[in-house]
Design a protein around this nucleic acid. Structure first.
Length: 803
DNA sequence: CCTGATCATGAC
DNA sequence: TCATGATCAGGA
């Protein structure tokens, strides 16, 4: 007896374990660990992952696997292990951790159908007769659309006329190309005689294959010989040619040539830094390196040559870059060096393209993957190095379950494969840098720019003084002057507006009231394009009212500074300037991001105005001025990392100027010019910032001195949420040691979302080896209420934000 | 006594 | 998560 142990696709606490299924004889030699199967589960059928195989089971009556979905496993043994570990350390379901490792398209789709059991439709009720009309199966979605009441169907089921069947489908599609080839090349010569005189096109085709009988895609044949599909079809019918399908990859970069680049000579610093990495690859050791390199110090070349080393050893490499900086420039550098050995994974690809890139990895056709967060799960089997660029980026942590951090996954995989993990950044997170100093990570430093250029001069402008001088615009006099100067010199300008901390909310100037979402405790934001007010958290929206709903005054206005508004006033101040605006609105469409940047590179604009997304990785040789419009907009949001984030952003954006021959300049506008994050960023003094910020973190007991876990509890009933949160806090207190601090219950920053009240507890801990299991125990104690009473308990370890 | 609505339970 | 059977309130 062969038994498969299966994790089924049912995200529920009580189902979050293994289920045993009999492997039918016909599948005995086929089923392997890591494959997806379809299994009966209760009355329905669901997808599941085989994670183990056995010869017997403790369960008496086993059901059998219905179908095997894969020819080869989609998950390796390592990834299965990783899944279990992730489920333990993020408190998520095993099924979710396995699903998150695969391209979306492999996620099963479930369909419910009604099947006719009798011949003909005579015995059916009139309603059902009209439903089936000659068909044998009807999908439930159609039944719902037609509003047919369930008891017609129930009755028919009871009478044995119909039955419900469950279908599991894969959305997976492989793109195919149709090819043409001669059935037997030797027969073509004779066949030519039988082709009618007037059938010129048929002759052309035959003659073509006589000359060169290599198969050809049908599309190409049509183009080359100016023929059509029907001519080919006639020859197929005559038995001379045949068509067949071959699978192809959707290659998002297929029409682009990547000029081959060779390794660049290294600076002394680069050579020093690369040495220990190479050695670790060579010795097949695991180590975590923190590569701290100023912007423009040539980190990418260090990555490239480290990867080279791994490839030469026959191993593979994963490179993570933040989604936002996965620009064509970046892809170019990797494709240029490693050509077709590279797969690229990012959110701009269609589901089909992502699947194809993933398959290249799975089939070991590529050795390098460059991608955003989820590329960390690339199914490589011989990893030689893992690189995380811009290590400090918050997007490496997934915001919803499973709330994993790509850095942790990288270290897990690095240990498994005994290979180095390289974390690179000009502004590492305090957590990482502290580990670097302690020697937990090996600290590597690049302190000079490759071209030995100085970092651009940073000029801090105090906006309060501007106000005193009578300048009420959002562009300070020095900035205006410099912009004017660049436009004249035909040099380019990058302007950064930090939208966070600003939002376009609506307020009445008479009564001062704002317009809030009726389901969430947050004000609605104004969307100019559709003249609507929308809620960010639920789908609620209303047309922009003409009168204040409270006092019926006409003076309701929207406040805040959106990029559009800045663009307008920028245009007013510099009527001759050509401006490109980059924000969520202008880059939503596929390829828009890329197109705008290309325009700017081609000097079709003088000013690039944008949000965070322009702060990273861009490299334009004609940019000599960078302006930050509101450097402190992030400082005032209640987040213990706000100083760190401000420092990071200012440093990153300053690095955009003067990267080539022309020297650069940076202007930072702020209302808090003496805040240490602004001041130290302008001096490019990371070490000093680190020292200062560490003191702050110590004083307030924040990371890296303490770990955090945030528990958020939500339910439609307000008093009930408070009560549950209190109970949770009490249990936590009982279970943890006396160094650990439990804060709360407190209301979440947004106390209500989608009509659910939200309360939270914060755990600050230094050493709680059992926290994961304890936390799981606590959540399990509420299992009943979670399942039956619509209670939600969310646990986020090392949260990015407190919401 | 029937009907629809809500609840509790189990799924290899 | 979701189908099922049990239980309960309300209507005539």
């Amino acid at each position: 007896m062969k038994v498969a142990r299966v994790i089924v696709d049912v995200p529920s606490m009580s189902i979050d374990r293994l289920f045993d299924y009999l492997i039918p004889e016909k599948y005995e030699d086929i089923v392997e660990k890591g494959m997806r199967v379809i299994v009966p589960f209760g009355p329905r059928k669901v997808m599941g992952f085989v994670v183990d195989m056995q010869n017997d089971s403790s369960i008496e009556k086993l059901k059998s696997i219905v179908e095997v979905m894969d020819m080869t496993p989609v998950l390796t043994d390592e990834l299965l292990k990783l899944g279990t570990w992730l489920a333990d350390t993020t408190l998520s379901f095993k099924i979710s951790t396995l699903q998150v490792m695969l391209p979306q398209i492999l996620k099963a789709k479930y369909n419910k159908e009604l099947k006719l059991l009798v011949e003909g439709e005579e015995e059916l009720s009139p309603v059902l007769k009209s439903l089936f009309v000659g068909r044998a199966v009807v999908s439930f979605s159609e039944i719902e659309e037609r509003n047919i009441s369930y008891h017609h169907i129930q009755k028919a089921i009871k009478d044995g006329y119909v039955e419900v069947q469950y279908v599991v489908k894969s959305k997976e599609t492989k793109k195919k190309l149709t090819w043409v080839r001669p059935v037997n090349p030797l027969l073509l010569e004779e066949a030519l005689v039988d082709i009618p005189k007037h059938a010129k096109k048929q002759r052309v085709i035959i003659e073509y294959f006589l000359e060169d009988n290599e198969p050809l895609p049908i599309k190409q044949l049509e183009g080359k010989l100016h023929t059509t599909r029907s001519t080919v079809q006639t020859l197929v019918q005559k038995g001379l040619l045949e068509t067949y399908e071959q699978e192809i990859y959707r290659d998002p970069y297929e029409n682009r040539n990547f000029e081959k680049t060779d390794p660049l000579p290294l600076t002394t610093e680069q050579a020093e830094v690369i040495e220990p990495i190479h050695e670790t690859i060579q010795k097949e050791n695991h180590d975590v390196f923190l590569l701290h390199g100023v912007t423009g110090s040539g980190k990418t070349e260090v990555y490239l040559q480290s990867i080279q080393k791994a490839i030469e050893k026959g191993q593979e490499a994963i490179v993570l870059v933040p989604e936002i900086s996965l620009t064509p420039q970046m892809v170019h550098r990797f494709k240029g060096r490693f050509g077709s050995k590279v797969a690229v994974m990012h959110s701009g690809l269609s589901a089909g393209e992502k699947f194809d890139e993933w398959r290249k990895i799975q089939r070991q056709e590529v050795q390098v993957v460059v991608g955003a967060r989820s590329a960390i799960f690339a199914p490589f089997r011989h990893l030689g190095i893992i690189i995380i660029d811009e290590e400090h980026e918050t997007s490496y942590k997934q915001d919803d379950t499973p709330r994993y951090h790509a850095r942790d996954v990288a270290i897990f995989r690095g240990e498994f494969h005994q290979c180095p993990v390289v974390l690179g950044s000009a502004t590492p997170t305090l957590e990482s840098f502290a580990r670097g100093k302690k020697g937990v990570y090996k600290l590597l430093t690049l302190s000079k720019r490759v071209n030995n250029q100085n970092m651009p001069e940073v000029d801090i402008v105090d906006m309060r003084e501007e106000l005193h001088k009578g300048n009420r615009s959002m562009f300070s006099f020095p900035l205006q002057e410099k912009i004017q100067e660049r436009i004249q010199k035909k040099e380019q300008i990058v302007l950064l507006l930090n939208r966070r901390g600003y939002s376009t909310f609506v307020m009445c100037r008479d009564c001062g009231s704002t317009i809030d979402c009726p389901h969430c405790d947050i004000s609605l934001t104004y969307h100019r394009k559709q003249e609507k007010l929308k809620c960010h958290y639920c789908s609620y929206e209303i047309p922009m009212p003409k009168l204040c709903p409270h006092c019926e005054s006409e003076s309701i206005r929207y406040f805040g500074t959106g990029t559009q508004k800045v663009e307008e006033s920028l245009q007013q101040t510099f009527p001759e300037a050509r401006i490109i605006r980059m924000d969520v609105d202008t880059t939503r469409r596929k390829g828009a991001h890329e197109r705008l940047l290309a325009q700017f590179k081609d000097k079709k604009a003088d000013i690039l105005l944008g949000t965070q997304m322009i702060a990273k990785g861009l490299d334009f040789d004609n940019v000599t001025l960078v302006g930050v419009l509101a450097a402190d907009s992030m400082l005032h949001i209640p987040d213990f990392r706000s100083a760190e984030k401000t420092f990071q952003l200012l440093t990153q954006v300053s690095g955009r100027a003067g990267r080539h021959q022309l020297p650069g300049e940076v202007i930072v506008q702020t209302y808090t010019p003496d805040h240490y994050s602004v001041e130290l960023a302008s001096q490019y003094d990371y070490e000093a910032f680190f020292g200062h910020e560490m003191k702050v973190r110590k004083a307030f007991q924040y990371p890296p001195y303490y770990f955090l876990a945030l528990i958020t509890i939500s339910h439609p009933n307000h008093p009930y949420v408070i009560q549950v949160t209190q109970r949770v806090a009490k249990k936590l207190n009982e279970m943890s040691n006396n160094q650990t601090k439990i804060l709360g219950p407190t209301p979440s920053p947004i106390t209500r979302i989608k009509n659910r009240y939200r309360y939270q507890c914060m755990v600050k801990y230094r050493n709680e080896p059992n926290l994961y299991t304890n936390m799981r125990k606590i959540v399990q104690e509420f299992e009943h209420e979670i399942q039956n009473k619509d209670l939600q308990i969310n646990v986020d370890f090392q949260p990015n934000h407190m919401m």
